[in-house]
Design a protein around this nucleic acid. Structure first.
Lengths: 197, 197
DNA sequence: CGCTGATGTAAACGCTTGCTGACTTAGTAT
DNA sequence: ATACTAAGTCAGCAAGCGTTTACATCAGCG
């Protein structure tokens, strides 16, 4: 059988260490303000391994995005009723995992300037907005479809903006608001934007 | 008397050229992704003048922020009724000036990492949120004051998120939505978040 | 053992960055 | 004209960047 003791040399393990560290840095500081040496230091790993495992800084960033895509696809299911949407957003913004993973949403706002990476990023955001529109009972097409999608994108904007204001600015009381404190305002926001009319 | 003909060497003029170019670049690409040579080229001015007039890249960024502060104080008055807030936001996001000045709001989301600059930035954002809370009929203190301020900050988050999604992503139909198309959803959002309850 | 491929390390490469100092040019007053 | 100052130019520096190359070390296997 293969070894059960943690290998001192574990390619997949250090790869993951790099991915985690990179995601934290990219999310909190943005792409170009983050240096590969920072990432390597935070991961406790040699700098050259970034290029070995991900070809380039760009490649590492893309890997972070696709990883975020997978995670988002797992946690946020497709057909959640509109009532549950505020819960999901509040959990994503201030859930118990927030310490370790500084809001996956932030990463989706960071651009590297690279075209391919930006396509991935925009693709995730688009599908996010479309799922939101579907939850709002949007018909796949029809007269009001565009309006509902627009409103879903605005709701997504709000979630992303909150993530940014909590992190990049330390705007109180928003920055310290817990999951439950965010829930009520988010419910009213979603209700006004996607349910009422 | 002093000369009335436009001087070919005009310190105040080139200073303003640099400020305008810098604001465009910083807003659209962020601080660290923007190089001083880019700014100088876009302004049609020699690179060294940035350091002459603003001491450093950081100084130029701070000057952009204080300039944005002045402009915001002029355009957005203190006591606008809540009904007018959606108009003001829609105008700021997609008004006729949007081509030249890529949404002042974007600049307020860009961090340079410098402490002083970030204090200025956060100060502008805070006062923005407080004006919003005041429009929502918030009493200066009292039991519900914190909640109203939190909701105002969430409304501000939405505006900032929209600016970001229109620019950094090119998310349709949000990115191409005009002032009038944004107005209705924003009215519903503000109504649900700050008026209703 | 000795060999081999995978994993990690160290040092440097070439390039871009923000910034500087010595210089030239334009405008004005004497 | 001459001298003086403000405004703009130019070449280059030191530092930091992403990346690469050459080397060391370990695991697995005959």
């Amino acid at each position: 059988m293969t070894t059960l003791t943690p290998r001192r040399r574990d390619a997949a393990g250090t790869r993951q260490l790099l991915l985690d560290a990179a995601r934290r840095r990219f999310a909190s500081q943005g792409y170009s303000a983050t240096t590969v040496r920072e990432i390597a230091d935070e991961a406790g790993v040699n700098v050259a391994l970034i290029n070995r495992y991900f070809s380039s800084k760009e490649g590492l960033f893309e890997a972070c995005l696709t990883g975020a895509d997978d995670e988002l696809g797992r946690t946020v299911s497709a057909d959640v009723p509109l009532d549950e949407v505020p819960h999901a957003i509040a959990r994503q913004l201030a859930g118990p995992h927030t310490g370790r993973h500084p809001s996956l949403l932030l990463l989706l706002l960071r651009s590297s300037g690279d075209e391919r990476a930006d396509e991935i990023r925009l693709g995730i955001l688009r599908s996010f907005a479309e799922r939101l529109a579907a939850s709002a009972g949007r018909p796949p097409d029809g007269p009001g479809a565009e309006q509902v999608l627009l409103r879903a994108q605005i709701a997504l904007s709000a979630a992303l903006g909150i993530a940014l204001l909590r992190s990049a600015a330390a705007m109180e009381p928003l920055a310290s608001a817990g999951e439950d404190e965010l829930l009520e305002p988010l419910q009213d926001l979603i209700a006004g934007l996607l349910a009422g009319g």
